[in-house]
C-alpha cells in the first residue's frame, strides 16, 4: 500500500461525500461550492493517476470557469433564493411523481452502479504499469499531429458556443418593456 494509493483512496472518499452534498445540499449556493470542491478533488485524482496536465486543465476549466459561471448563473436567475434554502429541495412526492422522481431514479442509479462495479470486478484488467511518462509532451505532440483537426474544431465549437450564449442571454429590452 504505497503513498499514491492511500492518497487516491482518501481523495476518492472525500470526492464521493462532496458529490453527495452537491445533490443534497439544501441551498443551491452551497451545492455549487460543493461542486467546485468535487472538481478540485477530481483534479487530485488525476494527479495520482499520472495526468498532471489534465489536472491543471481541470482546475482551470472546471474550478476556475465552470463553477464560477454556475455561480453567476445562480445569482442572475434567482437572486432571492441565493441565501435562503432552495424551496424546491424539500417536498413531498405524491402520485406518479413518487415513482417518477422517487423510486425509479434510486433503483436505476443503484442498478447502474451495481452493474458497472460487477463488470469491473469480473474483468481481468492488466496490472498498473508503474513508472513515469512525460504525458504533457505526449499530449502536446499528439494534439498537434494526429488530433489537429479535432483540436481546431474544438476551438470553433467554443467560439460558436460563446456567440450562441451571448445571443441567447442578451436581454431584449424592447420586448421586456412591452411585457412579453
Amino acid at each position: 500500500m504505497d503513498a499514491t494509493r492511500i492518497a487516491f483512496i482518501v481523495l476518492a472518499a472525500v470526492a464521493v461525500v462532496s458529490a453527495f452534498r452537491v445533490v443534497t445540499a439544501p441551498k443551491i449556493m452551497h451545492a455549487a461550492l460543493w461542486l467546485g470542491f468535487t472538481f478540485m478533488l477530481v483534479a487530485g485524482v488525476f494527479v495520482t493517476l499520472g495526468a498532471e496536465f489534465l489536472a491543471a486543465a481541470q482546475v482551470l476549466v472546471y474550478v476556475g470557469a465552470v463553477t464560477t459561471i454556475i455561480l453567476f448563473g445562480i445569482m442572475l436567475s434567482q437572486a432571492a433564493e441565493v441565501r435562503s434554502r432552495d424551496p424546491l429541495q424539500r417536498e413531498r412526492l405524491e402520485g406518479a411523481a413518487f415513482w417518477r422522481r422517487g423510486v425509479l431514479p434510486v433503483l436505476a442509479t443503484v442498478a447502474f452502479v451495481a452493474i458497472m462495479v460487477t463488470v469491473y470486478m469480473r474483468v481481468p484488467w492488466p496490472a498498473p504499469p508503474g513508472g513515469v511518462i512525460d504525458t504533457v509532451r505526449l499530449i502536446g505532440s499528439a494534439l498537434f499531429t494526429t488530433y489537429v483537426i479535432p483540436f481546431e474544431l474544438a476551438a470553433v465549437l467554443l467560439l460558436i458556443a460563446l456567440v450562441g450564449a451571448i445571443v441567447l442571454a442578451v436581454r431584449d429590452d424592447n420586448k421586456e418593456e412591452q411585457g412579453s
Binding site: R100, R101, L104, P105, A108, A111, F112, I115, V119
Partner: peptide, 19 residues
Amino acid sequence: QSYMLVLFLGLLAGLAILV
C-alpha cells in the same frame, strides 16, 4: 426528467443484456 429516466432505463436494459 421522465424522458431522461426512460432513456437511462433503456441504457440499463442494454447493459444488463450485455452483462
